[in-house]
Amino acid sequence: MSEIKQKIALFIDADNAPASKFEVVLSEVAKYGVVTIRKAYGNWKSPTLKAWEDLLHEHAIQPVQQYDLIKGKNASDIALVIDAMDVMYTKDIDVMCFITSDCDFTPMVTRALAEGKVVLGFGERKTPAPFVNACSKFLFLDQSETAATEDISKPKNIKSDTKLIGLLRQTIEATEDDGGWAALGPVGANISNRTSFDCRNYGFKNISSLFKAIDLFEIKRSQDKSYVVRDARKYK
């Protein structure tokens, strides 16, 4: 019996996304299913979109032309939202993917989530936090190469990130056993239910590497060889 794959709609804000990272996006969305809709929005008369234009035929991306009718007003954003809403209500789509560094699409994302869709976001580090946090999962494209080659022995200055440390401690507390140990599987699932967290955005390939780099936590192999972690401050 063949596996049923989720259907994905991919929307590209070509004015606010790096074409050079499109292969990274395709590799990531392939984990969720098959992309049945691929659309890119922008003023294709502009030379700044040449890199995206070169990818259109290779990756079967449908270009949507939008002229900049008024300076400072991006008609592409409006067209993208209209199409995304249309797809959400008229097409059999499970996952909606947005490639953009623009937070103007945050209401679109929250609406898609309310309709039961998984929402994947991709953008550069400059992407505003409201859009990043609204997505089911968001990946910073300018961090993907670092994450793919990171060395956990390399010191990481992430202990000062109080929001991250607080999140990790809360998820451990929510899933720990009587000894304070929490399996990484449930920890990761709990984090995903709370926010769009992705360890690659911090320069790590996986969550075990992240915990190993922070001496505020203890991490070890359990009897079944899976990783477990606990908050070290509680057991000094």
Rank of each mutant, 00 (worst) to 15 (best):
A114V: 01
G116L: 03
K117T: 08
K117E: 09
K117I: 03
V118C: 07
V118G: 00
V118F: 08
V118T: 14
V119D: 05
V119T: 13
L120A: 03
G121E: 02
G121R: 00
G121L: 05
F122H: 02
G123F: 09
G123P: 02
G123D: 12
G123E: 05
G123Q: 05
G123M: 03
E124V: 13
E124S: 11
E124Y: 09
R125F: 07
R125K: 14
K126E: 12
T127M: 07
P128M: 09
P128H: 06
P128L: 10
P128S: 10
A129S: 14
A129T: 15
A129H: 11
A129P: 02
A129M: 13
A129G: 01
P130I: 03
V132Q: 08
V132C: 03
N133G: 07
N133V: 03
A134W: 01
A134E: 01
A134V: 03
A134K: 00
C135H: 06
C135I: 01
C135P: 00
S136M: 07
S136Q: 03
S136K: 08
S136R: 06
S136Y: 12
K137T: 10
K137L: 06
K137F: 03
F138S: 04
F140T: 04
F140E: 13
F140I: 10
D142I: 06
D142P: 05
D142V: 02
Q143A: 13
Q143V: 01
Q143P: 04
Q143L: 02
S144T: 13
E145L: 09
E145S: 10
E145D: 15
T146E: 13
T146S: 05
T146L: 15
A147R: 00
A147K: 01
A148W: 06
A148V: 00
E150I: 06
E150L: 02
D151H: 09
D151S: 09
D151F: 06
D151K: 09
I152N: 01
I152K: 06
S153T: 14
K154C: 12
K154S: 13
K154R: 15
K154Q: 15
P155Q: 03
P155V: 02
P155M: 06
K156N: 12
K156A: 15
N157R: 12
N157G: 12
I158Y: 07
I158M: 11
K159L: 13
K159C: 10
S160P: 01
S160D: 14
S160K: 15
S160H: 14
D161S: 04
D161K: 02
D161L: 02
T162S: 11
T162D: 14
T162L: 14
T162G: 02
K163C: 01
K163V: 14
L164W: 09
L164M: 09
L164G: 09
L164N: 10
L164E: 08
L164R: 06
I165C: 11
I165Q: 09
L167G: 07
L168R: 08
L168M: 10
L168C: 09
L168N: 06
R169L: 08
R169A: 09
Q170V: 00
E173L: 10
E173R: 15
A174D: 11
A174S: 13
A174P: 00
A174C: 08
T175Y: 08
T175C: 12
D177F: 02
D177V: 03
D178V: 11
G179V: 00
G179W: 07
G179I: 00
G179M: 12
G179L: 13
G179Y: 08
G180L: 09
G180C: 07
W181L: 11
A182W: 05
A182N: 00
A182C: 11
A182K: 02
A182P: 05
